[in-house]
């Protein structure tokens, strides 16, 4: 077992495991966001639960943050090692002849997602941490005594620049997932008779989730 994570295959395996974790999280995040389209009350309830449940806040949230950091750091490590594996570049390289743009540019789509995450943390996560753990207000209520989550969400999506940035980020997320979903399975050695079916599912996941996120952002921007 020793040395597995110092090997090329081990590093790819670790990268894939963090990718699976993040893809499951993304589905959960999407589900909660989608609730906001149908019911203000249900969204407030779900947000309050996620924001105040000790298991979510003190176990799942740190694991998630570590997972995100690990995925990015490992992505950079792999990219640097891979760059070193070719010290002289080709004068002419026709990458489009044998691979997709998404597969060759995971580092760039990843960097775009990282930039988005910084914005997203400033927008939502830091104010939450400030309210709950610095000001010590875990009631989830505004001055009027109502839940504050839905109105905060609506307020954030009033700014068209922010909505535009979110839409662009989700396009990059889609491109990242279009390669990343199947790549994670290949890295853990799952390439068999179910691969074709899984490819279809992966494509659907990679398109439906980001498009769904875009829909939710646009819905709140235009409907209030």
């Amino acid at each position: 077992m020793s040395g597995i994570f110092h090997s090329s295959i081990g590093r790819k395996f670790a990268m894939a495991l963090s990718a699976f974790f993040l893809m499951i999280f993304l589905l959960l995040h999407f589900s909660v966001n989608l609730v906001s389209v149908f019911s203000e009350d249900a969204f407030n309830q779900a947000s309050h639960f996620m924001g105040t449940n000790p298991l979510v806040q003190f176990l799942m949230q740190p694991i998630l943050i570590l997972g995100v950091i690990f995925h990015f750091v490992m992505g950079f490590v792999l990219e640097l090692r891979n760059k070193n594996a070719r010290s002289i570049s080709y004068a002419k390289n026709n990458g489009g002849a044998n691979s997709t743009w998404m597969s060759r540019n995971m580092i760039y789509s990843g960097l775009a997602i990282l930039a988005f995450l910084v914005l997203h943390f400033i927008d939502f996560w830091l104010p939450e941490i400030n309210t709950k753990f610095i000001q010590g207000d875990i009631s989830g209520l505004n001055i009027d005594g109502n839940f504050r989550y839905y109105e905060e969400l609506v307020h954030k999506f009033e700014n068209p620049l922010r909505v535009g940035a979110y839409v662009i980020a989700f396009v990059f997320l889609c491109l990242h997932l279009l390669h990343g979903f199947m790549s994670a399975f290949q890295s853990v050695g799952a390439n068999n008779k179910y691969t074709k079916a899984l490819q279809g599912f992966g494509k659907a996941y990679a398109i439906i989730l980001p498009v769904g996120f875009i829909f939710i952002a646009l819905f709140h921007h235009f409907s209030h």
């Binding site: 090997s7 090329s8 790819k12 594996a85 070719r86 990458g95 044998n98 691979s99 995971m106 290949q186």
Partner: peptide
């Protein structure tokens, strides 16, 4: 074999599939 492959300085597979095509 994987240890030797890594020691030789080859990169990590990112599953682009270019190798299979070429």
């Amino acid at each position: 074999m994987v240890k030797q492959m890594d020691e030789e300085g080859f990169g990590n597979c990112t599953n682009t599939g270019a190798c299979e095509v070429e």
